[in-house]
Amino acid sequence: MNNRNEHSVSLNVNGRHYQLDIQPWVSLLDVLREHLHFTGTKKGCDHGQCGACTVLVNGKRILSCLTLGVMKDGAQITTIEGISNGENLHPVQKAFIEHDAFQCGYCTPGQICSAVGMLGENKAQTREEVQELMSGNLCRCGANKGIIDAVMAVKEGGYNE
């Protein structure tokens, strides 16, 4: 800890290593957005009520607004910027475009990270289960149908990497 109360933290974001000094009260969300400029991760409420800040930490979907940067020292973090394989969009990303699963696009990175996390968990089989396990991501434009359609299409194997 230095005299600005900063702690040295090492983060792996989207496969790249970052060493940075951050104050303990800075949320992981603000570390990503303001310090590392991964602005694809969105702030919709800053209080765990909307899901827009969803990222994958060590493969699991979490809310980056409800954790602190200093608590994720050494973690592997994937943000929306790291979901695609270079120029090649992830199947979920492709399906979102095809199914018009967004309008304003602001909840989209969180929806996509959440969907990728959910597919990895493999706990949702039916549409109703997918709806339930995606319910941590709000969409105010009302793109819900497209979002669930897109996730179902990926589940059913309609999209390949």
Binding site: G40, K42, I83, S84, T108, P109, I112
Partner: peptide
């Protein structure tokens, strides 16, 4: 036609008012 800005929105490249450096 699928939204032309779709690729920017699904990859986090779309920048909103509070995101400009």
């Amino acid at each position: 036609i699928s939204r032309l800005e779709g690729p920017l929105k699904v990859t986090g490249q779309a920048r909103y008012a509070g995101e400009y450096e």
